[in-house]
Amino acid sequence: MLSTVKGMIQTLSSTFRGLRGPVTKLYPENPTVVQNRFMGFPGLTWDKNVDEPFCTGCMVCIRNCPTQCMTATMKDNPKFADESSKRRKIVDEFEINLNRCILCGICVNVCNFDAIVMTHEHEESGISRDGSRMNLSGLLEIGGRYQTQTGWQPSSKD
């Protein structure tokens, strides 16, 4: 009996607490705050110095992806010929099937060129399955948004 009464009092007090500040928030009005390290969908980064993607299409991430959700092809970098870029090869086509991606971040860890990042993008729901196949321009777009949002800098390991 006593504990029941205690429970009743507890729910009552929580009601008053809830009236002052409920824990839940309305969603679109209060967008989800993600932490700095939040891993959303992967995106490709843009090298502003040379005005081209970091990605060389080296396929390391593709071989390491546990779900095999990416494909890429590379081509000769035209900017390498006129010496404006140090990259001999550059990505030609890049596709990630975001339906298959499990957001594990392995691709980011294995990439040697800082070309791929886990962006803060997480509201990618659509009405067609096709819509979640991201091509190079889409990936660069969400990657670029991530770059401007967080001021991302390539680590100086290369």
Partner: peptide, 10 residues
């Protein structure tokens, strides 16, 4: 966990 590892569950 999210602020440490980047994901809430996986």
């Amino acid at each position: 966990f999210e602020s440490i590892s980047g994901a809430r569950m996986m």
